[in-house]
Design a protein around this nucleic acid. Structure first.
Lengths: 340, 340
DNA sequence: CCATGCTCCCAAAGCGCTTTAAATTATGTA
DNA sequence: TACATAATTTAAAGCGCTTTGGGAGCATGG
């Protein structure tokens, strides 16, 4: 069933039927109702490809999913997607996901953009001087960045959390508890959030005349294995840290395993604060020693980004160019006074 | 840059350029190379919407993501998606994800199918007598089912794991270890895999003249909280179970927390076998007491499903209508002889 | 009675591609 | 040299929708 058949069925022109469906004012209400009724009865749905071709609008937002055989899937990705979905469903938008090899992301994004399949783009996992940014800016398609790109002018729309403040505050708390030997388990060094979080820690320590040693810093993918390995390394240092900051509850999961295996007590021998993206599987309050965290919901970020993206496409704006969310510092049992 | 412009640039007709690009044989090799070179230089990409309209092919597979505010996102979903992506990227396919309210899935699937946005569909989380199946069969669009639908004729293509055998084998192992008091922590009762897994357990127990009591069976969403709650309930029974079968490592995560909190020892006081979908975040070997599991990679299933779906669309088949994968039973420390 | 302004509705063009049917050019054969 | 045949190329017709530019039909008012 297509428009032509439907209009013949109704004895109307395609124009009128199309207008009736799209809410144009110049069609008689009685006629509109007749059309709507026929749509219900026939189950007619406009062909999206044709609609897209005619209007240039796709009703979808695009994203690239880095993937490869052996490439570990990221729990954060799923959670973010849930947020996007939660909002998109309200506007009858869908998303088009292009899987791409991690080395091919810029090109994949470009292909996606000029394919005509999507109205807007979204990127995340930002790096310093991110090459995707340059490409996107040249593209004249709305986009939004989750995170920021250190070293680039912030002349692009973004939603980010204040990573620096979050880790500054967390470090500050540990300082107040008397800790002096710090460690940081961070994400990959080239990622923007990792850079900023480190800065936050360094600043807080600096105010007390302390330094973050290289030995006590790890930059790894955010998996529990890496957390385990990094923490094992820290624990073997002659002067092992008593305060650990952790870029993800996933890393913390491994780190705590290492702490337990070493026979140490979390919250007594070692204090730990992790950043909590509010993953359904890793609730900090459910750890055997509940985790002190800096919290910011990834899912909420996804929903907000969808809202802005869709709003931009449908001209429902305006939206602020930049949003910087504060993370909450939530104190639980994994932090305590420095042992002496 | 579109076809028309490109062909004018080359002094050729759109037909020839189109054919050159799509590998038709009736175009001179020299001409084809000239076209290809021009494409490289100009960065021309065909408009997908137009291509789709003309061919009816979309180069994409569709799926519905159940979502709603407060609807917990499923870790299994992300992992499955990773598998789909891994294979899709090889064929330059992408996926179109329609988020939909859980109550609206059938309709959403229908909309997706007739939108012309996708070439093939995929469904999962099968229920007994699944209503989506009826709809899909009436649709004349290729689809594949992950799982099966209990109570429907298996006259549709599916990929499933042998849930019944997996749980039969697991129960059998525990029986051989001398256990007689069993519990089953299962997924929602209406889901196909839950029905079959329960059957497997019941059959194995039945062979020894044992029964699975209602008190010792839970049907819940597969989250760690639910695992905790269910296990707490089991542990308060006058005759508490010594052998527990668990439909997911996620449930096991909570269950083990409950066991620890009760001061019991996993693998001694209580033996537990969980089904392992090979989630990157929950490796059974990383639990403080490594978990005995029935293992089957969700990601591998995703990749295979993508392969079959894409193969069907591109006529690369034929593929077997049905695939039933065996899960591996891997024994680790969470199982031991029944305490006496 | 005719110009004016509405309200509705329609024919046809166009979005960018593929593909059918036909035209043109090249090649081979008698 | 002429003609059949093969090798290339092209014009034009869609694919199913939106939208531009009119055009009936009808009431209003001078």
């Amino acid at each position: 069933m297509n428009l032509k058949q439907l209009s013949e069925l109704l004895g109307l022109s395609q124009t009128t039927v199309s207008r009736a469906l799209n809410g144009y004012p110049e069609v008689n209400e009685a006629t509109r109702e007749r059309v709507l009724r026929a749509v219900k009865e026939t189950g007619y749905r406009p062909n999206k490809a044709a609609q897209r071709l005619a209007t240039g609008k796709a009703g979808s937002i695009g994203l690239v999913m880095p993937t490869a055989p052996g490439h570990q899937s990221d729990v954060h990705f799923g959670e973010f997607l849930a947020g996007l979905g939660e909002e998109s469903v309200r506007h009858d938008f869908h998303f088009v996901i292009t899987p791409a090899h991690p080395d091919d992301e810029v090109a994949a994004l470009r292909r996606l953009a000029i394919s005509g399949n999507v109205d807007a783009l979204f990127i995340a996992y930002m790096r310093g001087h991110d090459p995707r940014l340059v490409m996107l800016k040249s593209l004249s398609m709305p986009f939004i960045v989750h995170g920021r790109s250190f070293g680039s002018e912030p002349d692009y729309p973004y939603l980010d959390i204040d990573n620096e403040a979050a880790f500054y505050d967390a470090a500050k708390l540990l300082l107040q508890l008397g800790h002096t030997r710090f460690a940081l388990m961070n994400g990959p060094a080239h990622l923007d959030f990792a850079i900023r979080r480190k800065n936050g820690v360094v600043t807080a320590l600096g105010e007390r005349g302390l330094e973050l040693s290289e030995d006590c810093t790890s930059h790894t993918p955010m998996t529990d294995e890496e957390g385990l390995i990094a923490m094992e390394r820290f624990l073997q240092l002659p002067e092992r840290p008593t305060a650990v900051l952790c870029s993800s509850t996933v890393l913390a999961l491994g780190a705590i395993r290492a702490i337990n295996q070493a026979g140490l007590k979390l919250g007594e021998d070692i204090s730990l604060i992790a950043h909590d993206d509010v993953l359904p599987l890793l609730k900090p309050e459910n750890f055997s020693v509940p985790l002190t965290t800096t919290r910011s919901s990834l899912r909420a970020a996804g929903a907000r980004i969808a809202q802005r993206l869709i709003g931009t496409v449908t001209q429902a704006g305006p939206f602020p160019e930049h949003e910087l969310w504060k993370a909450e510092l939530i104190v639980r049992a994994s932090t305590g006074p420095a042992p002496r």
